[in-house]
């Protein structure tokens, strides 16, 4: 009799488990429920395509579309106008002999400049956020895991960083350093980690109390393994969200810097400096202003919307349902 029961008690079959749904599919379902996030994702896709094609088309010694080509015969041409083929050397002629988005005061093709700008924005957004995410995760993890003095020191550093008005601090540092796009990325990265460190620390503090971390300690796993293999993957969700939104704000910061004349040094184009150039010709050549402004707006919007969608899709509370 008792053996019988034993058998039934420990009987097992797969049908005990609920239907298997992979995490990716669940995530996708959540994302699709939020129309704003969905459109954000589509816009992001377009942005990546533009930025990558921008990199391909405008780089190299002899680019297909040269954003730096000055054509004094074709200044401030309106969009879709034909190039002045008779007066241009073959090298100066734009792709298809048409200025799709017009030209600026030096006769440079706005489309190719905007494409290069997309490339710059992508670079700035991802590298600076990469730096801040890396710093934020490491410092936040250390603070949250070790607590005590380590935590006090790191959190004091965060408090201090948060006291400085970040945009002005960036301006200050950029003004002291030699102008280069790399310096901009590093400075934006180094000034925007505190937010992420705070998130990671908060996650770590709650993870620290969870039993699976204690279990890992009881199994004699190393601290490094516990922190970076067990805890970080569980703390990554809010980081992803704030990183996505961080890319948006890095792009915005860069364009602000460029607008004020401290961004990407000429002759390289960025959306910010196209816009700054355009403001002088706001009535004569509004396209300069509108193209670059809209490009910034749409890209930043896409990142922000997608970030918010991620927040919902990764939210464990919503996932329960």
């Amino acid at each position: 009799m008792s053996e019988d029961i034993e058998k039934t008690v420990y009987r097992h079959d797969d049908s005990d488990l609920p239907p298997h749904i992979s995490n990716v599919k669940r995530f996708w379902l959540q994302l699709c429920q939020n129309p704003l996030a969905f459109w954000g994702l589509i816009l992001l896709g377009l942005f990546f395509l533009t930025a990558i094609s921008g990199t391909i088309l405008t780089h190299g010694d002899n680019p297909i579309m040269d954003p730096e080509q000055v054509r004094l015969v074709d200044t401030l041409k309106s969009p879709l106008s034909k190039a002045n083929i008779e007066l241009l050397t073959p090298k100066e002629r734009p792709l298809f002999d048409i200025y799709f988005l017009g030209t600026d005061k030096l006769g440079r093709d706005v489309l190719s400049r905007a494409l290069q700008g997309a490339h710059v924005s992508l670079l700035v957004g991802f590298i600076s956020v990469g730096i801040s995410v890396l710093l934020g995760i490491i410092l936040g993890a250390l603070a949250g895991y070790y607590g005590n003095y380590v935590d006090s020191i790191i959190m004091r550093a965060v408090d201090i960083m948060l006291c400085f008005p970040s945009f002005f601090l960036i301006l200050t540092i950029i003004a002291l350093l030699p102008a280069s796009i790399w310096n901009i990325m590093i400075v934006i990265g180094l000034t925007s980690w505190p937010g992420i460190a705070r998130f990671v620390r908060a996650e770590f503090l709650s993870l620290r109390k969870q039993d699976f971390v204690t279990a890992a300690e009881a199994l004699g796993l190393s601290k490094f393994r516990i922190m970076f293999v067990h805890m970080v993957p569980n703390a990554i969700a809010p980081v992803l969200v704030s990183a996505t939104i961080g890319v948006a704000s890095a792009i915005l910061t860069e364009s602000g810097l460029s607008f004020l004349g401290f961004g990407v040094p000429p002759p390289d184009a960025s959306w910010g400096n196209i816009l700054a150039d355009g403001k002088e010709f706001i009535f004569d050549a509004p396209w300069l202003f509108i193209v670059s402004g809209t490009a910034i707006l749409v890209t930043v919007l896409a990142f922000n919307l997608f970030g918010e969608g991620l927040r919902d899709a990764l939210n464990p509370k919503l996932r329960e349902l």
Partner: peptide, 25 residues
Amino acid sequence: DRSTTFFSYFFISLPSFFLAYLSII
């Protein structure tokens, strides 16, 4: 809710200098 959400994102994403010039004009 949906429209305030959209407009919030719109204004968060709108570069202030762009908006400033547009509104000056």
